[in-house]
Amino acid sequence: MARTCKVLSPLVVLALALGACGSSSDEGTTTTGADGSASRSLVTCRASGEITVAAAASLTEAFTTIGDQMEAACEDAAITFTFDSSGKLSEQILSGAPVDVFASADEGNAEKVADEAVGAPEPFARNQLVIVTKPGNPEGIASLADLADLADAGVVALCAEDAPCGRFAGQALEAASVDIDEGRVTRGQNAKATLTAVTEGDAVAGIVYVTDARAAGDGVEAVAIPEDQNVIATYPVVAIDGPGDDDLADAFVAYLQTDAAQQVLADAGFLAPT
């Protein structure tokens, strides 16, 4: 098997671990990062690899950045993303969608696709819920309980009950013993759509991931949910037996554990996996 491997400049804070030829090739070279850490910054990519990564909508910004990093490092690697609710994505994968990597916002959906998966799901990030309101929080929302007592036309945006963010929101509301009348809940198909109902639409508030709130910038104001009510979502990633390049898929899964990728995820508001 002829493999084209390439060593990146140590200046590039990028590490591809256990890549396509990294562990099995003699040509692999270990370099030391600019920061001096002896991380596994071996960069090995096979030319003209193509993969499709299906990822939870909340990963949109972080994964786009990570994808750019990988494409910059790996000549001729093309990574295509499809972002939607994890529930929708797992359904699509089971229906035979051409996907090579699945990053879910919950463990349930990652397990659902076990038959199509290559290897076991591996946690790579965690996320938390947060209340978002219009900028300036005009309704003065301070807690989950306030969401149930909004003025007349106030509508709360939650994720669909079957999307992880919707299920987690339900758990958080239950933990806080808050019951919002379903007649004033608009259900977004995924975390992004839910956020949009607050940023663009007339939803007074919503419950989304911390990462979504951060991505929205000034568009919303975030109101923290206390630890005892909040839900920690664990994000697993798993390679799928898809039409794309298997080695590149493995490389992507592995890359998520590197310092560089973890930094991007942390910048987006994710917590490190336990």
């Binding site: 007649g183 608009t186 639409g201």
Partner: peptide, 13 residues
């Protein structure tokens, strides 16, 4: 519909 009127059971769903 989903963008403008949202997705509220019994009202806009």
């Amino acid at each position: 519909t989903v963008t403008f009127a949202g997705n509220i059971a019994g009202r806009t769903r």
